[in-house]
Amino acid sequence: MKRNHYHKRANRKYDRRLAAAFIGAALLSTASFSPVASAAVPDLPTKPAVSSTKPLSPLNKNVDRTRSAKSIADQVKLDKETANAPIKTSYTAKKAVKQQNQSKAAANKNQESSNQAAPKAKEIINVTATAYAPGAHDNGKWGNKTHLGTQVRPGVIAVDPNVIPLGSSVYIEFPNGQGMHAIAEDTGGAIKGNRIDIAKWSVSEAEDFGIQTAKVHILSRGNA
């Protein structure tokens, strides 16, 4: 009887231990899947993101700097050219006007001059003077050319070659004391005897001259 009683107590003790083992295993399983347990696990360190942009090599950096410097230099040059454009235009216009004035001054070298004493002449002829201009209006089919083929211009006169030979150098003295040098290079159908026709730049200048009396001082006789 005592032995049976001992075996019953041993079986109960074993059942308790087995139940405790099952409960412990259940608790461990629950803890491994619990949110609290998951929260207790520290986050693993993440690997820093690597930039996909490749850094420039020293050579590429030098190329970029060279391009930037060239762009700046080109812009500065463009700005200077733009700023100087009005100056260049103004200078060109002034230069053109100056050249035109010089040409007129050279052409008018033999024209009227105030209070100039008449040079010593080989011969003096009293004449009636009129004026004309280049072009068909005054010079007909001859246009801008003289009888000698030169340009009709101030400083040229048309003469009667029987009175004043072509190519002669003369000084024309007007009653008001003014005078001008001229070369006999042209002739005209109405220019006969003691009459001369003085070339002007325009028809209006020729008309303003009208008809005047003058003295022609022949400085040298031509042989054209």
Results as ranks from 00 to 15, higher is better:
81 E>Q: 01
44 L>F: 14
102 Q>W: 07
73 A>L: 04
90 S>Y: 04
96 A>M: 05
50 V>T: 13
42 P>F: 07
45 P>K: 14
98 K>W: 04
56 L>R: 02
79 D>E: 10
69 A>T: 04
83 A>P: 03
87 I>F: 05
58 P>D: 11
64 D>A: 15
89 T>G: 01
62 N>D: 13
96 A>F: 11
75 Q>N: 05
70 K>I: 04
93 A>G: 06
103 S>C: 11
80 K>F: 01
91 Y>E: 00
68 S>W: 08
98 K>Y: 09
93 A>V: 06
63 V>E: 15
93 A>S: 11
94 K>D: 10
63 V>W: 06
84 N>K: 07
88 K>Q: 03
101 N>Y: 15
50 V>P: 10
43 D>Q: 10
82 T>K: 12
103 S>N: 13
85 A>D: 00
108 N>V: 12
100 Q>E: 09
81 E>V: 07
90 S>N: 12
99 Q>D: 14
79 D>F: 08
46 T>H: 15
59 L>K: 14
51 S>Y: 11
76 V>A: 01
105 A>P: 02
79 D>I: 01
94 K>Y: 15
59 L>F: 12
105 A>L: 08
71 S>Y: 13
81 E>N: 02
87 I>R: 07
41 V>R: 06
54 K>V: 15
107 A>K: 05
88 K>L: 00
49 A>C: 11
76 V>F: 00
83 A>F: 00
101 N>F: 08
61 K>I: 13
89 T>C: 06
110 N>Y: 15
41 V>G: 05
41 V>N: 02
57 S>Q: 08
101 N>Q: 11
103 S>W: 06
51 S>M: 03
82 T>Q: 11
59 L>H: 12
60 N>L: 14
109 K>R: 13
72 I>N: 05
